[in-house]
């Protein structure tokens, strides 16, 4: 391959690790693209960018980006990232993990990080099931939809993630699908500029599991379905944005919350300075 043929993102990815592990039609590669676009536009030095993930398909994403990247244990990406950010507030720490990782096994850490308004960007790739283990249902699987462990349809209501994050006091909350790559990139950039907890939910297809169980032929078909159901509404009432596309409910997207609240790092920094006796 001549230098001419290098992908424009060559310097930001671990080229030697491609092709990636994800299935054909998986949206995670698009999320990676969008993240890299956001990083380029944000102007934050590349050496300060840190990616942390838990376990799962999405959690493989940091391994493909050429930044300091940490693949940790299942559900524990947020506390790991919390430790990093507090120990070195210069870092721009982004947690990118799946819905199962962040909200099922790691739900407790999520609510506490949001409550603290910890200075993290948390990107949740929501594919409505546990992809890596074969498509079992989780707390984001829509009502009545099928999965490897709900063969008769799911009877559990889902989390309304933007509403949850907003109620906990997150500084920034948005939701996009991977079929909105430009909006998503802009949203990630805005999250990086936010002081405090920034949460982005990204809807992504899972063609061999959730897609297959619910009658979608491939990733493109599944994604087109979400896209056709979606409406952008930045001022949506967050109580109403839970995802239930199989019963005619629109998938509401947008930059829902963007507010200024004192962040944990700001307050902690003040505390340390006071304790050390440093005058302002």
């Amino acid at each position: 391959m001549t230098t001419e043929e290098f992908h424009p993102k060559h310097a930001l990815i671990r080229d030697e690790r491609f092709p990636n592990v994800w299935c054909p039609g998986c949206g995670l590669g698009i999320l990676l693209q969008s993240y890299l676009n956001a990083v380029e536009k944000s102007g934050i030095p590349l050496d300060q960018q840190v990616l942390v993930s838990g376990i799962g398909c999405t959690a493989r994403l940091p391994g493909y980006a050429k930044f300091d990247s940490y693949h940790t244990t299942h559900g524990r990406a947020i506390p790991f990232a919390t430790g990093m950010k507090i120990a070195n507030p210069e870092l721009k720490v982004t947690v990118v993990s799946g819905d199962g990782d962040l909200f099922n096994i790691g739900g407790n850490h999520f609510i506490h990080a949001a409550r603290r308004n910890m200075d993290l960007v948390v990107i949740c790739s929501n594919n409505f099931n546990y992809g890596m283990t074969g498509g079992q249902h989780g707390s984001t699987t829509p009502l009545t939809s099928r999965s490897a462990s709900t063969p008769y349809g799911n009877v559990e209501p889902t989390f309304n993630l933007p509403y949850l994050a907003s109620a906990l006091g997150a500084s920034y909350v948005s939701r996009w699908t991977v079929m909105h790559p430009r909006q998503l990139a802009k949203s990630i950039r805005m999250a990086m500029e936010t002081k405090g907890f920034a949460f982005i939910e990204v809807l992504s297809p899972c063609p061999p599991n959730f897609g297959k169980f619910n009658g979608f032929g491939d990733g493109f078909e599944e994604m087109e379905f979400y896209r056709s159901k979606s409406t952008v509404q930045n001022d949506a009432r967050l109580e109403d944005v839970s995802i239930d596309p199989f019963h005619g409910k629109p998938v509401v997207l947008g930059d829902f919350v963007n507010r200024k609240r004192p962040s944990y790092i700001m307050l902690e920094n003040e505390l340390v300075r006071k304790a050390m006796g440093v005058k302002k």
Partner: peptide, 11 residues
């Protein structure tokens, strides 16, 4: 195509 490609295969 470049923005949407999940596999960084086209630019």
């Amino acid at each position: 195509c470049q923005t949407i490609c999940p596999d960084f295969a086209i630019f």
